[in-house]
Design a protein around this nucleic acid. Sequence first.
DNA 1: ACCTCCCGCCATGCT
DNA 2: AGCATGGCGGGAGGT
Length: 799
Amino acid sequence: MENEKENLFFEPHKRGLMKTPLKESTAANIVLAELQPDFAGSLTTPTKPKEVSQGEPWTPTANLKMLISAVSPEIRSRDQKRGLFDNRSGLPEVKDCLHEHLSGDEYEKSQPSRKEKSLGLLCHKFLARYPNYPNPAVNNDICLDEVAEELNVERRRIYDIVNVLESLHMVSRLAKNRYTWHGRHNLNKTLGTLKTVGEENKYAEQIMMIKKKEYEQEFDFIKSYSIEDHIIKSNTGQNGHPDMCFVELPGVEFRAASVNSRKDKSLRVMSQKFVMLFLVSTPQIVSLEIAAKILIGEDHVEDLDKSKFKTKIRRLYDIANVLSSLDLIKKVHVTEERGRKPAFKWTGPEISPNANDPSPLVPFTPSDWEVRRSAKESCAKNLFSTRGKASFTRHPSLIKLVKSIESDRRKINSAPSSPVKTNKAESSQNSTPFPNKMAQLAAICKMQLEEHSSEPRKKVKAQLARSGHCKPVAPPDPPANAELELTAPSLIQPLGVVPLIPSPLSSALPVILPQAPAGPSYAIYLQPAQAQAVTPPQGLSPTLCPTHSSKTTGSKDSTDATAEKAAGDAPKASGSSTPGSLLPAPERQGAKNRNREPAGERGPKRAGVPEDSGAKKKFKEDLKGLENVSALMVSPTSVAAVPVGTSPALASSHPLPVQNPSSAIVNFTLQHLGLISPSVQVSASPGPGTMPVSPRIEAVSVIPENAGAQPGRASSYDSPAPGQNHLNGQSVAVMGTQQPVPVTPKGSHLVTENFFRTPGGPTKLTGSSCMDLDGANKTSLGTLFIPQRKLEVSTEDVH
DNA sequence: ACCTCCCGCCATGCT
DNA sequence: AGCATGGCGGGAGGT
């Protein structure tokens, strides 16, 4: 059916082509096909449309250039080394395209080395075919068969790419063998949603836990069950990781039942989770190890069987390759004492949970509400695993509901690829029942979870209070932390993530409290709308997650990243100053963001390393302080970095700025303290105060691939609408401004929305709008923790 | 020797 | 049954 439908839709354009791929594309043809992205898809397509959208010229030459540029960085360098590069095209890919040319020279190429066949390269080729911001008006469908042929790869490979792209809603499945290309129009929204979900899932906490465990293992450290653990577990479930289904955006949903059937396991889900990890972790560096553990359901690390772990890692590489091609991440290495760990750093745009909020200030219209609601529902769906396995599902009471829901859902989804669902409007009809249930479940679950979580936290708090030593949260600790760390230097390293220097473990604990949904401060932030829509009255944390608009994008390079961070910090800091939280509507977002981040930062900062009970006490105290101070908590993660900072206040206020002294000194100090590994260096900060240490580190590692590649591609594709450019992430500059600046232009949103999702045919706008409503998404609670510890280190590029 | 990850078998589920 | 999807992990290229 699906096909049929699709065909109908597309027939006009592609019909003939649809299934028949051009195999023969011998050289020339092939080239053309590749070169002309969309066209290729349509092959014969009558409709000119697709590629046209951007108006980008797709001459063969241009394509080659693009490909080359895209691929080249890596290959080029390699080739150069080898000496291959020189002559003909140094690019293997190119070769593919142009195999014609002398095989002699480059048979090597002709016989593509493994690398030439890499998924990353393939993905670049794939992406080269489509504009970053396709013209919605045009038919942007993708025929998998055609693409596979054109790119000379088995379809299986295309699935790998498409699945990841689908997870980012850059493509959506129309029907069998057909996808629609959305490009980056929705990317920010998607990322915002993922971030929100990631926060809700408390991935940051999970990461911390894992790290903590590592520490403990290494050092016997406190084995006592930390409060945090309990909390986390309660929230997440035994796994420690909430199992959730694919996160669907209102506008983009899977239409094929088959797709839905495997949703939970799918590469898509893994991809989303992986992305979430980046979005919620402060350093935004995630090691494969940690990612794998979390994705597996880490809590039972012990249980982990190697094979499973290995498989997960393999998959993560696949995903990472695609994400790298999208320039969302780049490979780096986190060095620990133990050795280097492969990790990836987020180089995509900074997103705030629902960053897009078009207009927070603006009152929501009824329609908006609906939208949000739908968004929320979708979130709920996501949260609950279809299986039942989901963490939330755990609650017995909920299981039944879940099952029923699932069944309903299946029915609904079962409609195969047929383009049915649409956003709210549509969904309302079809899926309405389901969503409602989901929403209810979600609400229930959240409530329950919150309760659970809150209790522990409360306990903790109480303890802390008793202890009385509270250190002021934020400020504190840099120094203290440093010391602590020193004592337990090793601890730091364990973290897979690189983070900011300071407080490893400690960060985790402290942070938690503040974040607790229950936390007063958070409550404040909640937007009524959100609360209602998304979560139960409680409001839970959800609100917390604000978007930090401030962070815009990131950027591309490490430097940018640093800058970003710095910027982010600054805002945060400011936020801290304004403890409160209750910001006027306009600021809400900012406030939220601030809150979130701060928390994360706090952790680190505060974090003392609990060496022993004493340390723990400190933590607790810190936590306590945090609670009290919650308002104050400001400094973002960057703070953590600040080992140097003497006064807490300073630290908080200026994230890392501490740099004041020479960076060299800082590094030296850090190293001694054990906060950072020798390998890592904190570069001198650019500006005083601005650069957080950690960022710097990141900065150090530069990445070859992406940078190089993207540019090429980007140039050609990116241009779309002005606003949109920002979306790409790369473009946006970050600013330190405290106030969150909306990264993406609202206008763009609108645009995108409209465009978005056109699967079936006529586009409908509605859905996308939902996404925009940040509110709904925001509902998540953010967890503030920042797991990071120090670890870190050098990020090297993979190559 | 380890890191990456290509390759394609084969299960799953829709048609 | 046939086909589209895509989970999965053996094993090989790279470093």
